[in-house]
Computed example of a mutant assay.
Amino acid sequence: MTSRPCFHLAIPVTDIAAARAFYGGVLGLAEGRSDERWVDWNFYGHQVVTHCTGERRSEPAGHNLVDDHQVPVPHFGLVLSIPDFHDLAAKMRAAGAEFVIEPYLRFAGLPGEQWTMFFLDPSGNAMEFKAFADESQIFAV
């Protein structure tokens, strides 16, 4: 049996209804299996599970300086196509999202040039989405 690579990530959330509103409503992800305290999401073909812990992250554990921006750590996200990246950025703006790092072109003209943006979910989980004009540059040094 051959399968395509797919990641699975479980993240803590404070409120399942808020998770549904954000992941399903704002991000537009399809909901899979669920129970009172967890929901599976189709995260662009990958599985993200929100598990209700009742505890909100007050702030990221730390930050790292990348291209003159303080990147929140930990964070998770995905590499999108450039059109999908800009569509998501517009969707987040329309929803009134507060960006941790506004969408911008990072490493312009250098190896690994990429569009990137960071925002928090309602439980304080930091998320990064990025896009490369040339996906062969994802691991460029």
Rank of each mutant, 00 (worst) to 15 (best):
Y23Q: 06
I16P: 14
P74Y: 05
E59A: 15
R33E: 13
V79A: 02
F76N: 10
A19H: 03
N42L: 05
L78Y: 07
E55S: 11
W38P: 09
C52E: 15
D35L: 09
A19L: 08
D40H: 14
A18K: 14
H46L: 10
I16S: 09
P60H: 00
Y23L: 12
V39Q: 14
H51T: 11
I82A: 12
A17T: 10
G24T: 04
E31L: 00
A18R: 11
Q47V: 14
G62C: 07
H51S: 09
V13F: 07
G45E: 07
V79T: 15
V66Q: 00
V73Q: 13
T14E: 05
R33C: 06
F76L: 14
I16R: 15
L65K: 14
F76V: 07
D15H: 08
G54M: 01
L80S: 03
N42P: 13
D67P: 01
E55A: 12
F43C: 12
V49P: 09
H63A: 10
W41T: 02
N42R: 08
H75V: 04
V71S: 03
D15N: 15
N64C: 11
W41A: 02
T14M: 00
G77H: 01
D35Y: 06
V73K: 03
G62D: 06
R57E: 02
I82Y: 06
V66R: 07
